[in-house]
């Protein structure tokens, strides 16, 4: 290795070592996203239409801009006691809640729907999905 490559290596290693020390403090980062542990499950909040549209009857929350729910969906993952624990991305869950909270009322155009948390169990075969009901709502595009 010539001197320039050695200098580049020294710079790179120093950045990695410093970042391991501070964690994440701009401009240093250990870029540890999703690296801390092996994941064997996943989850995502979505909506099931009672009249059965969408792939497997479940579609994204964002497909509907108007919402009226009997009670706001509780996105706390421990609400799904039958499935917990599982991997979830808090920011994605809170995006869902913010979308529903900010939505206007569907009026008479609402279709019956159930907000669910879909939980996948992952192994060496295809993913196995289970749904946990979070709220009953009416939705419209």
């Amino acid at each position: 290795m010539n001197g320039w490559r050695a200098r580049a290596a020294m710079l790179a290693l120093a950045y990695v070592a410093a970042s391991r020390g501070v964690g994440n403090l701009y401009p240093w980062s250990s870029f540890e996203m999703y690296g801390a542990t092996r994941l064997t499950s996943a989850s995502r909040i979505a909506v099931r239409l009672e009249d059965g549209d969408g792939q497997d009857g479940v579609v994204e929350i964002e497909r509907f801009s108007r919402w009226r729910c009997a009670a706001p969906p509780d996105v706390d993952p421990r609400r799904c006691v039958g499935q917990w624990p599982f991997f979830h991305v808090e920011a994605r869950d809170l995006e869902v809640r913010a979308h529903i909270d900010a939505a206007s009322d569907p009026g008479d155009a609402g279709r019956a729907a159930v907000v669910v948390r879909r939980v996948w169990r992952l192994g060496d075969g295809p993913a196995r999905a289970e749904d946990c009901e979070l709220a009953r709502c009416e939705v419209a595009p």
């Binding site: 092996r38 064997t40 969408g54 479940v58 192994g123």
Partner: peptide
């Protein structure tokens, strides 16, 4: 996670948690 990060589940979990279900 060690070498186990490169198994059959971790990357799928990350993708499923972020991707649109439909």
């Amino acid at each position: 996670a060690g070498a186990a990060w490169a198994d059959a589940t971790t990357l799928r979990a990350v993708a499923l948690a972020h991707a649109h279900v439909d």
